[in-house]
Structures are given as structure tokens and as C-alpha cells.
Design a binder for these strands. Sequence first.
DNA 1: CATTTGATATATGTAGGACATATCTACAAT
DNA 2: ATTGTAGATATGTCCTACATATATCAAATG
Lengths: 230, 230
Amino acid sequence: MAKTDLIKDLGPISQRTMADVVEKELRDYLKKKLFKPGDALPSELELADALGVSRNVVREALSRLRMLGMIETKKRRGMILSTPDILGSFERVLDPLIIDDSTLQDIFELRLTLEMGLADILYLRKKKKDIAELEAIAKSQDGGGKGQAFRINNEIAFHGKIYQMTGNETLMRFQNMLLPIFGYVISLEKVPQIGKVSHIDLVNILKDGTKEEFREGMLEHLKPHFNKLK
Amino acid sequence: MAKTDLIKDLGPISQRTMADVVEKELRDYLKKKLFKPGDALPSELELADALGVSRNVVREALSRLRMLGMIETKKRRGMILSTPDILGSFERVLDPLIIDDSTLQDIFELRLTLEMGLADILYLRKKKKDIAELEAIAKSQDGGGKGQAFRINNEIAFHGKIYQMTGNETLMRFQNMLLPIFGYVISLEKVPQIGKVSHIDLVNILKDGTKEEFREGMLEHLKPHFNKLK
DNA sequence: CATTTGATATATGTAGGACATATCTACAAT
DNA sequence: ATTGTAGATATGTCCTACATATATCAAATG
């Protein structure tokens, strides 16, 4: 067997640390044993003993699970399984500067997709009061000439309000996290183009129009972004 | 001031551990200093020294960042900033059994929203070859009477293929993670209802129909789910 | 000279001990 | 019944020590 063959066949051996292993072990254990939120876990020392590793390693693994919100620890009472904040970990990682361009583009498209898919839930839950607030936001922008910063904030406020109107807390938080990405990708544009359908147009559709009209309106509103996709 | 007022005003004091603080400190530091992927970090000992904490605490914080994929460590070379896998942390936490019902519902709606918003990107990127594969999946189900497990797997395969056709890797992985949630919520249904528009209908629309027709078709396909929303 | 081998220093990975701190339990004091 | 005290226990933090992998450089080998 030639040397190159050997090199090709031999992949790098696993470089997982004990903390990695223990973390996975613990998560599998919790899953397999059908632990429910509120259930108590063994103490760190017991875990270390059972797994045959030092308390240090166990603590690193537990520290990760704690960050994810999967467990909570109290001083003498020990640790209990908890319901994690599923978006919390997401938030920590969502920094445009450290995400690769391909993923940034993916996220940009993800938000466009969400925006286009909102109509049904929006029409299910929209309330007069919310539409009035949305209108106020749209109109506050109408004057124009308020500067770039104002324009961006207003854009964020308008679309954020729409998400809020869906009554879906997770969806709203999710889009809020995507905002920096969206802003970053847009900031790369040379000429900021604006769709034919304005915010006020969308509000008017929301007031009197149908879901289908709203979808068409949103598509037109986002058209400049869609046009740039490949 | 009444006693109840006092109790209401006094929240529990912060219980953040040093590891929590250091983790945040490090993330802020990396952000503020505009660290880019590939940049080297100080050694654990230097960090511990600079922050005035033990190496143990620093290691717990670093262990978290490592789990998120924000940093990579090599034995002697030290640590370097890295581009995190933004969905990796998500994956760990997405277990239907430990997520509260309200969030489960939110995620269910999130997936419906995505599905309804896919049309534009799908029509931008769909290829004959993919449609053929999609058709094969749809037809393999047509026979019927293949049992519950087959039906569910086929459902997953069909919708998964649609996401894959968007060419958006992140979107596809994202929906893949949402599958267990979706499956779980659906499994709670007593009578599994099926929309008027079938998979094969959707394929046919993809072949000859417009984006708008596809959206309408998808809405009909998902109708039973939408009907249950409040 | 080029390549390989070997030695050394260094940063991370792991172990184990020590002590502080918070809090649950139980019991005593008022 | 509330408050105070004491002991037990699990976590939080620090420290030391050593194993391990690897970048760097020197030495050896052809």
C-alpha cells in the first residue's frame, strides 16, 4: 500500500476531551431516563465517581448544560433539570463578524422566508389596536429626511411590530436576533433600494385587504432583496 | 410601605457565578476588540491572571465557548477564535420533553410560517432533477396502507426534500431540528387530518404552476394544522 | 544541503485536595 | 409561632501537580 493511500485512509483520531464526552453522556442520560424539569440530579461528586473522572471535568460539562439552561444548581440542594431557553444559546453566537458569509446569506434568506410566511398567522391574530400602532410607526417615517439612523430604526420598529402582532413570543425573539444579521447584510449594499410597496401601503392592506393581498404586498416590499438572490 | 409591596419590589439578588461573569466578559472582549476567526487568544493562565480568578473558572467559561464553537484549542498553540456552528447549540436544547408547551406551540407555528414562506426561494432555485426526486417520494406514498411509521417518514422525506431544494443549508438543517417538535405536537392530535392538497398535487404545481398557486396549494395542504391555531 | 530525528519548552487536559459559602434540617430559645 | 443556633452537605473557588500534545530549534544522518 502506497504511502498516500495510508495517509488518505487514516483520518484524524477523535480529539474529544473528557468534558465533551461527559457532556454528551449526561445529555443522553437525561434523555434516556426521561428526566423531566424539576427532577433532581446526583451530586457532582457522585457523577464524577460514577463516570470515573475528576470533579473538574464534571463541572465543565455541567457548566455547559447550565449555560444552555438545561440545569439549575442551588447551593446545598443540588442540581435540578430545568426547561432551557431555546433561543438563549442562539443569541450568544449570532455575531455577524464571526459567522461565515455563506451562513450569513442563509440567515438573510431565512428571514425573508419568515416574512413571506407570516400572513396567515398575522391575519389570524391581528387586532385593531396593533394595526393602529403599526400605522403610527409607518407614518412617523413618512416625513422623510430624518437621516439614515432614523430610517433604519424605523424599519426595525415596523417589522418588529409585525412579528409582535403574531403573538408568537419565540418568533418575535427569533427575528429580533436576526436583526443584526439582516442589518449587516443590508449595510453591504451600495445603493439601498426601496420596494414599490411602502410600510403605509402594507398597513392599509392589513386594514382592508386579504391575506393574499398582504402576501403580494410584502413580496413587493421585499422585492429589492429578493432580486439580489441567486 | 406595606409588607407585600416590599416583597414584590425585592427580586432575588444576582446569583451569577464567576464562570458566568467571565464567560460574558470574554464574549464582550472578543466583540469589542473585533477579534476575527483565526485570531489567537491569550493563554488560560494569562486570562486567569488578568481577570483575577482561578484557572478553573476561566476553563469553565472557555469550555462553554468551545461548546458553542466560538473557540478552538490546540495543545500547545493555544486558543483561536473560530466561526461557530450557529445551529449546533440549538440542536442540544431542542428536546420536546424539556421544552414548555407554550414554546412548543411557538415552534410549531414557526415551522408553518417557514413552510408558507418558502415559495419564492423555491421557485428561484428549483431544478428539474429535484422535482423528479420529489415526485418519486410523493408517489412512493401513493399506494397507501403502508403503516403509520412509513407515513410519517414519508412526510418527513417530502418536506425535507422541499427545504433541500431551496439550496439553503442553514434552512434545511433548521427544519430538520424542528422535525421532532413538529412530530411531537402532531402526535398529540387525536385524529390526524389530511389536507385537501396532497404531496402529488404540490409536485404538479411545482412542475407547471406559479409561485402563487404553490403558496395556495401549500396552505391547503397545511390547512388542518392552521385550523387548529387560535 | 535537505531531510529526518530528537530534545526542550509551553499551553492545554486531568486529577485531587482544600476551604469558603450557602442552605436544608433539626432543635432550642424567646 | 417566630426567631436564633448548630451541624451537615453540595456547590463555588482556589491551588498544586502532572500528563500530554506540539511548535520550535538543534543535531544527526544521508
